[in-house]
Design a protein around this nucleic acid. Structure first.
Lengths: 187, 187
DNA sequence: CTAAGATAGTCCCACTTGCAACTATCTAAA
DNA sequence: TTTAGATAGTTGCAAGTGGGACTATCTTAG
């Protein structure tokens, strides 16, 4: 008898009826929604699955979680010291999450930080040689994985997909983030 | 002086250098990875953003969280009683999460459940009239939202996008889930 | 019939993450 | 200069979530 308290007090249909009791009713008048055709749901599921596929690379092999990987990816790509806030803006990750990721990366000596003379509130983050080495190892693996995942699409389709993602991102104002962040950076 | 303990013990570059200290090094030899062109990252970010856009509908207006919404969506679409396990399989959500969602929905009398005579371990879930009414209100809103989000794409592009998502899902074995769940259901 | 293993569902625990408060610092305006 | 408000970063706290243990039930093999 699971959940004795709440379930007992809820309305119970008389038992004996195995099939759903909706048959008497007319078929739904309103539109129904097929989850499997619903793009938001599909995106969620797909993103989760793709993340899981990549996690085996950076998580199992290198002990990085997603926020940590995002910090490295940002530092590695920009190839220039930038602030934690900048990483947060770029990756759309909460600053507290980035803060914890940076702490972990510093403890592993993969990242170091330098006080910014111009603004002593912030720190310039950059990879250590060790972090750099890890990055150099990791990137090809991830790119290969990405290609594996997309290999079910033709080159043309891959391009189209990227373009369509871009359009949606733009219409959702997801793209400006990087530009804004760059603007705010003001080196 | 934040993080007195760990940060002090970490290597610190001599201050005074405002620009990144990587300039001396040769530009990276290995491939770099642009997060903004990296599909897994883009999917993650996009999914999060789209979810947030929809959350304003079912969360703020109807007090539903994502797992609860998924339960309703599954029940509403199949228009037939089904088990919590089935919902979990379909939506690729952990069964404990579905269990909690069902409990919450039952407390709000949006969903009820009937013992299955054939298999007394499981319960047949179905929406109450109240849940049905909410569903009927919610669906058009969500479909409208989806259309708004996709409105930056032409009809042709929307179709193509759906097809490409389908291909990727298939190659990741995300699609079989519904079929398998149907098979397991065995009404 | 019995025993071993599978399955549905619930719940405890640990982990992650976002929120919000807090400190330190910077900026702008009086 | 002083003060009010913004910003960078850290941390405590609470909510959500998955893993796994657990119970009850079913199934299958002996």
């Amino acid at each position: 008898m699971p959940k004795a308290s709440s379930s007992e007090s809820l309305p119970r249909t008389r038992s004996g009826v195995a099939v759903g009791p909706r048959e008497q009713n007319a078929p739904k008048k309103g539109r129904r929604l097929d989850l499997f055709r619903f793009v938001p749901f599909r995106l969620n599921r797909l993103a989760a699955e793709v993340s899981a596929a990549l996690a085996s690379e950076y998580q199992e092999r290198y002990g990085l979680d997603i926020p940590e990987w995002r910090v490295l990816a940002t530092l590695g790509f920009r190839n220039e010291a930038c602030s934690a806030q900048y990483v947060a803006d770029c990756t759309r990750t909460h600053k507290s999450t980035i803060s914890r990721a940076v702490t972990a990366l510093m403890e592993r000596h993969l990242v170091e930080r330098v006080e910014n003379e111009k603004d002593r509130r912030e720190f310039r983050l950059r990879m250590t040689r060790k972090g750099d080495a890890l990055y150099e190892q990791l990137i090809p693996r991830l790119l290969r994985r990405e290609q594996e995942i997309l290999s079910c699409l033709s080159a043309r389709e891959q391009k189209d997909l990227a373009a369509m993602l871009g359009k949606i991102e733009q219409s959702l104002d997801l793209v400006q983030t990087s530009r804004e962040a760059d603007a705010k950076q003001a080196y």
